[in-house]
Design a protein around this nucleic acid. Sequence first.
DNA 1: CGCAATTGTGACTGTCCAGTCACACACAAC
DNA 2: GTTGTGTGTGACTGGACAGTCACAATTGCG
Lengths: 188, 188
Amino acid sequence: MSETRSRGAGIRSTAEDQRVRIVARAVDVFAVSGYKATPVAEVAAAAKVSPAYVFRLFEGKLGLFVAAVDDCYAQVAAALVAAGGEEGTPAARLELMTQAYIELIRDRSLIALQVHAQSACDVPEIQDAVRRGLATVVRAVAGASGAGDDSVQRFIAYGQLCHLVVQAGLAEVDTAWARVVDHGIRHD
Amino acid sequence: MSETRSRGAGIRSTAEDQRVRIVARAVDVFAVSGYKATPVAEVAAAAKVSPAYVFRLFEGKLGLFVAAVDDCYAQVAAALVAAGGEEGTPAARLELMTQAYIELIRDRSLIALQVHAQSACDVPEIQDAVRRGLATVVRAVAGASGAGDDSVQRFIAYGQLCHLVVQAGLAEVDTAWARVVDHGIRHD
DNA sequence: CGCAATTGTGACTGTCCAGTCACACACAAC
DNA sequence: GTTGTGTGTGACTGGACAGTCACAATTGCG
């Protein structure tokens, strides 16, 4: 199974494993305070690794963040496709995906990181990552549901509404206006 | 008109003027890179004032940012109410407001600052500001349009979609998926 | 005038943090 | 052994930036 190639290209050691481990932690850690406000040292600590090592594995803090954002969108797209199921009308499949997205709120990280990425779009590399991620998600949803453009747009719009609900913590705000925004997105 | 109170409470000098001038600039400047990534010195420079003076007028950088966010939401609510007009069906008024919101994209600042505020909601004072602002907007829209809860929620959702379109710069992305997200929100 | 209050700033400090670099450890192959 | 290759870190540096403070400059008032 584990090939120990005698010579040639990459050595397939634990380095690549570390990379994915660190990215996984980076998603969670960056999700709390975003790009600029999160020190690399915090990600390193969460991954039980020294900051210096993180800088060796990634091209600066920016490279790390972009990797985390890419991973985040990939996870979201995968979750949506999985939730869409194999059959049913486009509308029904979209509904399943919508429920799946609301389910994602429980984790918070995937939602929050998207918000922070969108906020940091003044950095060109991050804007590119957001565009890539968005393309992935839109194509995944459209393809896996078979729904029309308007329905897909609507899906994305309500996704964005979820972001707002999560960030503002509307679940803890018990007022009429909050319930208007919140409606149908209620979560524990 | 301009009362020069001989004694008593506040002295109503130019200090309050400076405050509002600085807040106005703060909205524009914070809109570019957000809370953490924007030095107070940049706001001060935009307002042609020393950083030290800004710290005298506001309770730290946080106080300045919160003031900017409050002002931002107030402007948005005012613009929407103004656009809603005096008569017409709730649906028609909501449509006018939607067009007005899309019109706001031209400025970018009011949109971008909302995104940054939502992103910085891990700071309690900022989350409070977002909740206040959101309450203002939701109540303004619901009150001035007379539309039902579902329609208002839909309005907010499409507002959030505008935020995404602006931050990701989708107007410059000429692909099928971008047009799906973008549709009806096209701007110069 | 002198006195007080208010606007406004230059210069400084302390802290935090991205990024680097020389070095240590493990484990091959020879 | 030693030589080489890859994993991993401690210790440091340089810069950026929030916040402070002592000190002007201006204005109003008795």
